[in-house]
């Protein structure tokens, strides 16, 4: 890799780190209020066992909720796109329900499913489901007019049109929804764990936030923030990679420099 690509972000990182220490030194800030980077690194190492098992639980909940959202989101979108009436009746509701902040529903899920994994998965599902439905439905109903006429001149059956035209045409839209869902799923899993997690051996990152707050260990909370960012990054990068592989030959969004 060329230095002009990796050097600026590395330098910026070093600069921000230096600023961090400088601010702490200049204003004599207590490490409990604003711990310096090495304290966070130390907390990560000290609490590694707890942190990484929690990361595993949260990642698992995120994957489950996300997979459920992708499957159901796609199926619902196909259903909505299959009939003009269904789409007119329900699509506005999909858009409206997207506006409901999912945290509001957490107590409801806890009543339904009890605290722990099922509720956390439900929350992750709810937060990632709507973008997939909205985006995929849009892709399925906006098939290029000329291409549809082409299929008409070849007397293609309804199923041929769906498989050879509508689904491939909607693929980039579907993947856009999936990418949005991938950024939301880890947030959903952590929020869910924070508000519906349990203290037993299944503790995730959200539950550890509560634990470290009780122990007044802010450096460890920063360590959780760091691990959450890593989890989110891995999640999004994996989905981006899959999307790129699926579209690399033909779609504008997978061309370099665009």
């Amino acid at each position: 890799m060329k230095a002009r690509f990796w050097l600026p972000p590395v330098l910026a990182g070093v600069l921000m780190m230096a600023l961090w220490y400088a601010v702490i030194a200049a204003f004599d800030i207590s490490p409990y209020v604003f711990p310096p980077p090495h304290e966070i690194a130390k907390a990560t190492v000290d609490k590694a066992g707890l942190l990484f098992s929690a990361l595993g639980h949260t990642a698992w909940a995120a994957v489950l909720g996300f997979a459920l959202a992708v499957t159901c989101g796609f199926a619902i979108a196909v259903l909505l796109a299959s009939s003009g009436l269904l789409k007119r009746a329900f699509y506005p509701w999909v858009l409206a329900l997207q506006m409901v902040p999912v945290v509001v529903l957490i107590p409801v899920f806890v009543i339904w499913f009890g605290a722990g994994l099922p509720s956390i998965v439900a929350i992750t599902f709810m937060i990632s489901f709507f973008p997939i439905v909205a985006s995929t439905t849009l892709g399925l109903v906006s098939t290029d007019h000329g291409m549809r006429e082409l299929f008409e001149t070849y007397h293609a059956s309804r199923w041929q049109e769906i498989f050879h035209l509508r689904l491939p045409y909607a693929l980039p839209h579907f993947l856009t929804g999936v990418k949005i869902a991938a950024t939301l799923a880890p947030i959903g899993a952590i929020t869910g764990d924070l508000l519906a997690g349990t203290s037993n051996f299944e503790a995730g990152l959200g539950y550890l936030i509560l634990l470290f707050r009780q122990q007044f260990y802010p450096a460890a909370i920063y360590a959780i923030a760091l691990l959450s960012a890593v989890l989110g990054f891995v999640f999004v990068a994996s989905v981006q990679l899959i999307a790129w592989l699926a579209l690399r030959h033909w779609h504008e969004s997978s061309q370099p420099g665009e």
Binding site: D144, G146, M147, E149, L150, H155, P168, L171, W250, H251
Partner: peptide, 16 residues
């Protein structure tokens, strides 16, 4: 009727 072919103004190729 199916024995005719229609060539559209833009090539209308499937990009995938």
């Amino acid at each position: 009727a199916g024995r005719s072919a229609y060539i559209f103004q833009d090539a209308t190729l499937l990009p995938w």
